[in-house]
Design a protein around this nucleic acid. Structure first.
Lengths: 359, 359
DNA sequence: TCTGCTTTTGATAACGCTAACATCCAAATG
DNA sequence: CATTTGGATGTTAGCGTTATCAAAAGCAGA
């Protein structure tokens, strides 16, 4: 009763005394350093004191101030993760993969979505660096000059996911890197569709984003077509983010502008699904009249009628391994590992014809 | 070759040196307090100094330490948001609504997903409170006793979303509340399906979660059926989270266990979509053989063939208004507003028959 | 020129915590 | 029995920032 808390008014009371570790220590009859140890390094403290301190902390509803702790110890256990969007389940699943191990290791994930804008990424990186992050997770390899500079200057470990640093194709990774080559995905898709017998093959996506990863997928796709001496077709809408509705629109403009096209590779499964719905509505037979291929193998792909041929990437796994990489780096047991290629896999379903062996 | 630290003769340790505001001040030839002001309250400082300080800060890649700032000022501009999952686009869109205004006001959103577990929610609340949050956003009104206690003790403003505190139906809101009544949604769905002429109406969901909001939706649904003297049917799977695949399984067990059922209200659109895909596969005609109704009106609902009848809730709007509520509370211009009912709306599409006027 | 203001700038002391070192005390050693 | 030893506890000194108030500088009007 030494301390009289006059303002017991709960939620509206402006002035409220925070419970500090000193309060806990006083209550337990020890020095605050001892209380700190009892809470953070229990093994360094006698069993009896440990109990007393824990008890006092609980009784007082003590919650350690992480700002103060971080400031004093120099270690902020914050881990920002920047993704382009949460709209695609790809990124949600990557997050889940990351969540699997990081929070248990004491790290607090902070989420930011860049909406595919490098400028917004820069803002977010700047904001997050203020939290003394232990590391930063970024999506993709392409950042503004300032983003890279800030990150480099901060000396914070970085993992770039969802893209793969390849000599001559992409920029260099800032630090750690795990992902897959979008160029190769594009090439593989072109080759695959050609093997299925298609000759007028199109790429369809929302060019809006100018997302460098899509761009590289397109380039790979065009390279693939060129090697097979097939003509490239490209359609896109530039004014909206990806959605089922845009998928439908893309299908319509495709039929209008390139009626000769017999197969389409969409930038993602959502667009592909939208297109497929539109085909159902219009009575276009898939794959007989038109073949459709998606990208990323979201859950819906296997449930559509007919089921969608697409490209599977190991998102959850990628998140998990990114987390492991980080923990290893933070633990000091990692120097300069090369980029890790998670690869990808074409999942053959019913929206494309059976592929033939190439002679 | 890295830059050698030749500055202070600190004997041991201090190796990685952060750029502090003192460095910036020195470079600009002012006191650190002035530098702080130039950065945070530019209007309190002469134009000339402002420029000099900003310039120095930029040249040094200065990033203010938010932990130190928060500690000194007592104001952590952190805003934790706890959602049950990111798997449902509902929560993603709520997040977008929140993002719309909060970051610009300087608040840093911290995301946590509880996976529908109150225990995990408690953990997260405890972890987040350590960051001196300005406020906390929670999903739903049901929390562990300790969660409520910690929040109340902390004096932090709280907004509970996605549920509505109603006398006699739910618990009281901790502080601010904006959402809709799940009980009423259940009732409305039952009444609606009855008006469409169905008499053997089932509810299907993943009981796994024991999510109190679903439970209340079920209760409302049963109340609605009881008032109409219709028999209740209930099916659920208890071992997995919701997914398209589970939707298909639910449909199968429904046909097996309750073949007489002529209409189903699903716990969400994802399950309903899965069921619809399974109907397509099995040749079950919707709505002639079986009517299907979803919940939450995700994008896919309007694109399915036939388009899905469902219940629309204003997620984005809810996020936006939650943010406004918070800002008002934080600005001090808000005392004890009553829970805000965002309502809901049944969206009639093609998976149910045309409703008739009730006599 | 000087007095009484209003800016603008600076020095100092927290904020809550923990690293690093200092001290203490019981058990173990000679 | 004195003395070493090592684990348990306490003391001190920051961590990087901002609140607060004191000091200085500008700027009228007398």
């Amino acid at each position: 009763m030494s301390k009289v808390d006059a303002s017991e008014k709960s939620l509206t009371g402006r002035k409220r005394q925070r419970v500090t570790i000193a309060d806990v220590a006083r209550q337990a009859g020890v020095a605050s350093m001892t209380a700190s140890r009892a809470l953070n390094r229990p093994e360094m403290v006698s069993a009896e004191l440990r109990v007393r301190v824990l008890h006092a902390a609980d009784a007082l509803n003590y919650i350690p101030d992480r700002a103060a702790g971080g400031l004093a110890s120099g270690t902020g256990l914050v881990l920002p993760v920047l993704v382009p969007t949460l709209h695609h389940s790809v990124y949600v699943q990557i997050l889940e993969g990351l969540q699997e191990r990081l929070p248990d290791a004491g790290y607090q994930l902070m989420l930011g979505s860049t909406e595919y804008s490098p400028a917004r990424e820069e803002q977010l990186v700047e904001a997050f660096l203020g939290w003394r992050p232990s590391a930063v997770v970024l999506s993709g390899l392409d950042h503004t000059e300032r983003t890279s500079r800030l990150l480099r200057a901060s000396g914070v470990p970085v993992v770039e996911i969802m893209d793969l640093a390849v000599e001559g194709e992409t920029g260099q990774a800032l630090d750690l890197n795990i992902g897959f080559s979008h160029t190769r995905v594009g090439e593989a898709a072109a080759t695959y569709l050609a093997r299925c017998g298609y000759r007028q093959i199109a790429y369809a996506g929302t060019l809006t984003t100018l997302d460098p990863r899509s761009v590289r997928r397109i380039q790979g796709f065009q390279t693939g077509l060129a090697q097979l001496k097939l003509p490239p077709h490209l359609i896109g809408r530039s004014d909206q983010p990806s959605s089922l509705a845009v998928g439908r629109e893309l299908l319509l403009s495709l039929r209008r502008d390139f009626p000769e096209v017999d197969a389409v590779f969409f930038a993602n499964d959502e667009l592909a699904a939208g297109a497929l719905f539109e085909c159902q509505r219009l009575g276009i037979r898939v794959p007989d009249d038109l073949a459709i291929m998606g990208f990323s193998d979201e859950e819906i792909a296997s449930h559509l009628n007919p089921a969608l041929t697409t490209v599977r990437i190991a998102r959850h796994e990628m998140g998990r391994r990114a987390a492991e990489l980080l923990l290893a780096r933070l633990g000091g047991t990692l120097n300069n590992p090369p980029p890790i290629d998670m690869g990808f896999e074409i999942v053959q379903r019913r929206t494309t014809a059976e592929p033939q062996e190439m002679s």
